[in-house]
Nucleic acid binder design. Structure first.
Lengths: 220, 220, 220, 220
DNA sequence: TATGAATGAGGCTTCATTCAT
DNA sequence: AATGAATGAAGCCTCATTCAT
């Protein structure tokens, strides 16, 4: 299911408008799953925050797990669509990579709910992700962007040979995801200083720096 | 509660040995909470994997949440005790830091259950960590080790001034934790290549490299 | 919730008839709470005496205490509605008061379950009554009847001035309630003679006599 | 069991002193049963308020019900011992009766815990009182005092013939007990005015008045 | 398309009591 | 005389889900 602003369905009223009902349910579900996890979320709570009834959840999504899988797919879609929209072609490889990395860091920060859903899915051993072709398919293009930049940098002789885009993606993700996913425990122990704007900007700059140091041809 | 190998209590039989009973329960609880999360774990399941009964869980731990908090404290204890035992004093700063970082990466890999419990706690907004002075107290010494190495490196003039040990800790943790916490989704999408021994060693080496690049005085 | 004999809902069958289900549960609950108290009553026992299931108790009443509060409200309603229906306007004050007092005594005798629920509530320090605006609101009208009779008697010069209707109510209630609430211990010690019909009629007559002696203008 | 100040046992220390241990337990039990009822009281709570352990409760009292019966017997003993100590022989019948009634009212007011235990026993249909010969035996002497005053009054020709001491006792008790037992609900609905000192004295005076009006030879 | 009513299965927790020493 | 450890039975309540209309 895609959440679009379908003009036709928008014109019709709230009821008797399946797409609007589905979107309403899904958006509530995402916020509930993100806040409470899969087993921690109550179908009743989702229903009560919805403009429709619990019965409709089952009507449209089959069961709780079906709804969760849609929320998971939505999480992957949103996390990836940002990178896809990024235009890096006009930039030289070094700047393109810097832009991509910085964007990833910021994009994750802006979407904590979806990061949380990904973490929840990890707690569940990625069982549902394995069932969802849709979600799996979404991450590959994201990698494509990074691979393309690497290729360009290597061709231009500014990046060292033998780079592994998957490993690079892993590194960028690690720092971008951790920044959101572990904020609760980290700030409980070490305070919130690192999560204020200035500090976050430094962390982002250092992330870019680290990644560039990793890919660049060492100076002779 | 501390898990000690008390010779005296060990001699006594299984029953009428509170420490052994508590340890038995806690060790099963850790594995269940790590596998299924807080709401996903069944007290009955824990009990059935124990040599004692469900009633004893409540006798010694009060309720499910009380048991979970003990599991959480144990997770922090184990994750930190390794670093504490590390002897870095005989090494020059650069090598000391390299050793500390590499150790952290490996130590996290070896303790996936405890990483999972930390992630679960993040899903729960660190609410229980905030309640547990014990757990909060454990992370500070870990940072001490890192701060000490930084200080030595700066005094020796090999590390750049103005380093923030907390930020460094954040960076090392990010890559070490993500490597475990997000393995399910990451390997579902990109395959398991990155998690085989050789690749893990490369990732660890790159982590060390990245951190050193970050702290070292840039060459003139 | 009001227990009405709604013709429309009566026509429908047993299931899918919320009012009938609620009434069924509440009536069983009253008899169980009256017999066993709040903590002594088992939700399972109530359910098993019902034509519906335990689950419906929670569906309609939230929890055991919610059900108990409804039973309490029903007790106050029944105990008061009798007096409200009493027509005293056509009688001179002395006869009106006599009729009211005698009625109160009999009405309490006829409703031992509700007296018992009130006693149970007293054991619980009236905590639930304090929570229930409904129940608290019911006792005030009852007093109004008594106050009105006093007023008429005083205006006519047959009752002494300065009467306190609340104190009078207290006195009438004391003897009417005690007659029911303490019958078990009293009859265990002193035998059942006082609770046979003839003796009860004498006690009622004496109660009326006592109250009248209290309010009447002493003869010159 | 009687609660006496045995000099010999008092001299011995706290432990190794069965009577002191029993007294400690019983006094806590009375306050817990009075506050929470039979099913509402927890053996653990009693134990924790005691200077000894839960095991001792079972050692000395058999089970929870055994302890409750002792508390019930103590309640009857205390409620009756006051009247027994009253010296009425020097007073003329009218004054003797007035003193007895006023005393009963005050004595009940001063012992709310024991009144509450009696009410609790009524909730339990006096099942335990029926089992306890001790408790049953205690109420009869109390009645003796009242019967004796009646006899004297009738012999002196100041009380009307045909008085029933049991009925009189019932009437005095009703007002004295209700004053304590129903205070929670009554004051929740009608406020606390009636339970302040001045009002209580008026109620007591009216009670004496009512009883005297009932027994006295009507004036010619 | 939509809904309020209904539910079986199973969850967490509490309780009085007994055991082993 | 005294105790900490241990327990079976049963209590209250919640949950995802389906039924009847």
């Amino acid at each position: 299911m895609t959440i679009t602003t379908d003009t036709e369905t928008e014109k019709r009223g709230w009821t008797q408008n399946p797409d609007a009902v589905k979107r309403d349910i899904l958006s509530v579900a995402i916020s509930e799953f993100a806040a409470n996890g899969l087993s921690g979320t109550r179908v009743d709570t989702i229903a009560s925050r919805t403009r429709t009834s619990k019965r409709m959840i089952y009507y449209y999504f089959g069961d709780k797990q079906g709804l969760y899988i849609k929320a998971l797919e939505e999480a992957y879609r949103v996390l990836r669509e940002g990178e896809a929209a990024l235009d890096l072609d006009d930039l030289p490889p070094r700047e393109a990579l810097a832009k991509l990395v910085a964007f990833t860091f910021d994009h994750h920060r802006r979407n904590p709910d979806f990061i949380r859903i990904v973490m929840i899915e990890n707690i569940h051993h990625a069982d549902h992700l394995a069932q969802s072709e849709v979600a799996r398919a979404m991450d590959v293009p994201a990698l494509g962007k990074l691979a393309e930049v690497c290729r360009r940098g290597q061709e231009a002789g500014v990046f060292r040979p033998g780079l592994d885009p998957v490993a690079l993606h892993w590194q960028v993700c690690a720092l971008s995801v951790f920044n959101v996913s572990n904020r609760p425990t980290f700030s409980t122990i070490f305070g919130t200083a690192l999560f204020e704007e200035a500090a976050q900007e430094r962390l982002r700059a250092q992330l870019v720096e680290m990644i560039l140091a990793l890919v660049e041809q060492p100076h002779p």
